[in-house]
Simulated scan of single mutants.
Amino acid sequence: MSDIAGFGSNPGALRGRFYVPENLPRGAALVVVLHGCTQTADGYDHGSGWSKLATDQGFAVLFPEQQRGNNPNVCFNWFVPEDITRDRGEVLSIRQMIQAMVTKHGLDHRRIFITGLSAGGAMAAAMLATYPEVFAGGAIIAGLAYGSASTIPEAFDRMRGHGGPSKAELQRRLAEASLHKGTWPKISIWQGSADTTVVPSNADSILAQWQGVHGVGASPTRKETVDRQIRQVWCDVDGNELIEKYTIAGMGHGTPLQTLGDDGLGVAAPFMLDVGISSTRHIADFWGLTSRTEARSGEAPKRSPGKSVRTYAPAENPRAVRADASKAPQPDARGASATGITKVIEDALRAAGLMR
């Protein structure tokens, strides 16, 4: 693993890592993966299996990583206005990393995708809102709608399902986050029905927000069962899938995994939950990145062996310590107590001088 500086001005003072399979052809796709609070890029990749899938299917992966100097719980600052406004803060740093990857590795700028868990999911929503022209698709796992909070108290309230902008206001904030007038990215939404950290109503808010820009109705085009879980789909008039929403029955806060069997991928850990369905595989399917999708279109899958992860280093850009109201890990890998998580976060905020 090596550090590389100079991918841009890096106003968000983030670190970036990436994985590129060996002999990756020019014009390959790029997936951007954002970890959750207290996690690292390497740890989230190990749990989710994105690099392994990239080796199997032939695409590159970028892993922006938060730094403790920006946030005591290494959460992306998904609710801080200066970090989620186009061409400012953390969203600009991630955008600069993406451009560096596309330029250096000859990637297809029309096939860039982004996903994240929890605070990373909320930051993925911010990237999709502020740079919709960059992405062909996104996936938000246990995240929050763009613009749903702008202060620490609001962030806690939204996570718990209290208050928040109206559906119309959420749609307005998404539509006005950029000057974009073209096609919007397709969106995959994942939520555990028993999540007490970022409660399920947040997935409904994300859905409502994106229904506006995609011009689809409240009712899904179809509802089906996939790996024993409920999948709802919204399509355009030509039948193209624009939005999908998975509700994972009985799952707490984390990324859904299926680690066993021929299609097993990833490793269970705190907030990496082996519940019999691989969000990583299904998201890649939805985006058209896997051999299963390619087989349907008559294209051959791209496969190549991988090489080690390399890194971008953060530019020298110290910032005041700030805190994201998201979760901290618990020993129980199936989920965690909202009360315990809140105490850990509030203790960290007090230690950082951000809360009394």
Score class of each variant (00 low, 15 high):
Ile206Thr: 06
Arg292Tyr: 10
Arg158Ile: 14
Arg222Asp: 13
Cys235Asp: 11
Gln258Phe: 02
Asn23Ile: 09
Gly239Met: 10
Phe156Pro: 01
Phe156Ile: 09
Val267Arg: 11
Thr342Lys: 07
Asp204Cys: 10
Lys52Pro: 04
Pro165Val: 05
Gly137Ala: 15
Gly182Arg: 05
Lys245Leu: 14
Leu242Cys: 00
Pro72Met: 03
Pro314Ser: 11
Gly143Val: 00
Tyr19Cys: 05
Gly212Leu: 03
Asp324Thr: 12
Gly340Arg: 12
Val237Cys: 04
Asp56Ile: 08
Ile189Phe: 02
Ala168Ser: 15
Pro11His: 12
Ile98His: 03
Val344Ser: 09
Ile140Asn: 00
Ile152Asp: 08
Ile189Asn: 01
Gly138Cys: 10
Asp347Asn: 14
Gly254Tyr: 01
Thr255Ala: 11
Ala29Leu: 11
Ala218Val: 14
Gln229His: 10
Gln67Lys: 07
Ile98Pro: 00
Thr339Arg: 12
Gln67Ala: 01
His46Ile: 08
Gly182Glu: 04
Ser93Gly: 14
Tyr312Cys: 13
Ala333Tyr: 09
Gly106Tyr: 14
Val102Gly: 04
Ser297Arg: 13
Pro318Asp: 06
Val74Asn: 07
Thr196Ser: 15
Ser278Leu: 04
Ala175Asp: 08
Asp195Ala: 01
Leu265Gly: 02
Gly161Met: 07
Gln66His: 09
Gly335Gln: 00
His162Gln: 15
Arg292Glu: 13
Gly147Pro: 03
Ala142Gly: 02
Gly353Glu: 06
Gly353Pro: 05
